[in-house]
């Protein structure tokens, strides 16, 4: 039976409990021990599971030999790489446009306002996304509600990032921005210049 060490603080508390409840130390020890033993079993099981998991990973190889004996990436790794390269090549720059007249969050209002009134069709934000990132916008929430997601440019990721940056910088020159009494350095939904 394993006896775990008890700190002085714990021992003092237990002594007080013994005095106030009339419970002797031997009885307390009997009550304490099964829980410690159970904890030990759980820890051992977790450790075994981790060890087995590591053993499993090390046996599934990331490299294989082709028919000529040359070292190659495993088919699974090749497929994952191809998928990720495809995602980088298939990106789009988009605008989030107000679907209705309403108040939208403002992250670039220099007068400290946290919301801004946008008319239907006005830009709230520019952004970039890649193939496979649809999950970024669950439940139609693009960071605010009542917005249309409007892809404006398609290309590889770098080209889309440049397009996004150009649009963010030139936002103050848009007719809708020029008509506003408050100047915005970038669209209300863009927190930074990228």
């Amino acid at each position: 039976m394993v006896k775990l060490p008890i700190s002085d603080k714990t021992r003092n508390i237990q002594s007080q409990a013994i005095e106030s409840n009339g419970v002797d130390e031997a009885t307390l020890e009997k009550k304490r021990t099964p829980y410690h033993f159970l904890l030990l079993i759980v820890c051992a099981a977790l450790g075994a599971g981790l060890w087995m998991g590591q053993e499993e990973d090390s046996t599934s190889s990331i490299i294989v030999l082709d028919q000529d004996g040359n070292v190659e990436l495993s088919p699974e790794r090749k497929a994952k790489l191809a998928r990720e390269l495809d995602e980088i090549d298939n990106a789009e720059q988009y605008a989030l446009i107000a679907a209705v007249n309403g108040h939208f969050p403002c992250f670039s209002c220099m007068d400290g306002s946290t919301t801004i009134f946008l008319k239907k069709g006005e830009v709230w934000k520019y952004g970039v996304t890649r193939k496979g990132e649809q999950i970024r916008y669950p439940a139609g929430n693009f960071g605010a509600m009542d917005l249309y997601y409007v892809p404006q440019f398609k290309g590889d990721y770098a080209a889309c990032l440049k397009e996004e940056k150009r649009k963010i910088y030139y936002y103050p020159t848009l007719p809708e921005a020029l008509m506003r009494s408050v100047e915005l350095i970038r669209p209300p939904g863009n927190k930074t210049d990228s």
Binding site: A95, N101, G140, M145, Y149, P151
Partner: peptide
């Protein structure tokens, strides 16, 4: 003005040419 908190939300993924 629609209330922020409601039951039905509608959006669109719309190519800019047809917006």
């Amino acid at each position: 003005i629609l209330p922020q908190d409601r039951q039905i939300y509608i959006s669109g993924r719309i190519w800019h040419d047809i917006l």
